[in-house]
Design a protein around this nucleic acid. Structure first.
Lengths: 228, 228
DNA sequence: AGAAATATGACAGCTATATGACAACGCCTT
DNA sequence: AAGGCGTTGTCATATAGCTGTCATATTTCT
């Protein structure tokens, strides 16, 4: 579960391009193509940042920004405005309406990426250079490595995601179905029992550090990560 | 034993979507696709809330709601109506027929979820609690653990469910039959005496914490949890 | 004491989970 | 394009843990 970014732009091509670039940069990305789907998407995806086009059919980017900031639970959500205008006044309006930064089209991906990083660093520093710590386990999200007692624990991609999810939700029991939804992603059809196997693999990987007991089976319910 | 929600909608896709979202939110979810299966599903699953589509093939949602409310044991069961109509009169009819709330399609998942929470909070506040406390006993529902004096008390699945039920209904006496119905679930055919055995096991588990006296035998009636 | 209800220990069957093996797949490198 | 490497999902099988029932002991009430 990495940093999630919601793209709001009516041009599908741009959305696709951005999505690809963002995913490439290690983010999780999703797009909506008009203002009225934004709130639903926010609730659904719970993004950590929004890229918001200035010009949207039906509802302007500013209106959308205001709408977002109006919702208490999203007041803190950082917004970066994308706009074709270069006029000073639009910049002012944009920032006034609650945007955290402002990128003019055409922009270089490089610039966009660094602005995203800057905004994230300013608004939610923990997301970027976050180290997840549970007891003796340290997960470095940026380098995607897991360390215990100064030794790296090699993990396959799925085991890594599984452990990350557990470390972000320690001590709570999750059913196999919940794990499939939240680690594998929705609309993935996989056997429930597959979770068992990956739990096994995760435990095996943790074994050399003698930490396999951290993954606790809750019979009849699922699994949880033992809190330190 | 988490919060259980029954979805009644003839569109399988919507049911699946809802189920997934609900499970993701930590509920237990199940769907039926027409009105005539509802009563059986109620008896089988004993849900804590019903999401009921207004338009159903054969039997309207209102009829189903009436049917549910007509059954004494389900009179208290909260119902949220899902409907495409926005007219005021349908809302009135819906609420008159016994629905507790009313969500118009298309709805955002976020809205639906918050309405579910609201209804649950209103109708069965204890269900939402994440920590149940009775005297020195603490039950953490999310991690499915029971703690007394900083020490974890290991419980088997049935003992856990049994204790959870008692902690949600403290000080009240339940007959063996009632316990079987509410802890084991209906249409489970089990000997009455089996309850005794699980009470014994629960007491044994509580013994190390010297709390086995919390489970009180009410001769001729059943058992109850001693209030702190 | 005698009857009725409950407590307790043992156990056989069953269910859920753990584990090892494997074939398919995707991704490099060649 | 082919071959190698690591990863993934599924299955079959092994294990472990739980469940319900019974027989018997103990308690409680009349």
């Amino acid at each position: 579960m990495s940093v999630k970014i919601l793209v709001v732009d009516d041009e599908v091509a741009i959305c696709n391009m951005l999505e690809m670039a963002l995913i490439n940069a290690g983010y999780e990305a999703k797009s909506v193509y008009n203002g009225k789907d934004v709130m639903a998407a926010l609730a659904d995806m719970q993004p950590d940042l929004v890229l918001l086009d200035w010009m949207l059919p039906g509802m302007s980017g500013i209106e959308v920004a205001r709408l977002i900031k109006q919702e208490p639970s999203f007041r803190e959500l950082p917004i970066i405005m994308l706009t074709a205008r270069t006029e000073e006044d639009s910049k002012v309006t944009g920032l006034e309406s609650g945007a955290d930064d402002y990128v003019t089209k055409p922009f270089s991906l490089r610039e966009l990426m660094s602005r995203i990083k800057a905004v994230l660093r300013r608004r939610s520093p923990t997301l970027l250079d976050q180290q997840l710590v549970q007891g003796d386990l340290i997960m470095d999200v940026l380098s995607q490595r897991v360390i215990a007692y100064d030794r790296e624990i090699p993990l396959g991609p799925t085991e890594y995601k599984l452990l990350e999810f557990f470390m972000r939700n320690p001590d709570r029991v999750f059913s196999r179905e919940q794990l499939l939804n939240r680690v594998w992603g929705t609309n993935v059809y996989v056997e429930d029992r597959t979770v068992d196997v990956h739990i096994l693999r995760l435990r095996k990987a943790l074994k050399p550090a003698d930490l396999s007991h951290l993954i606790v089976t809750v019979r009849g319910s699922g699994y949880r990560l033992a809190k330190a």
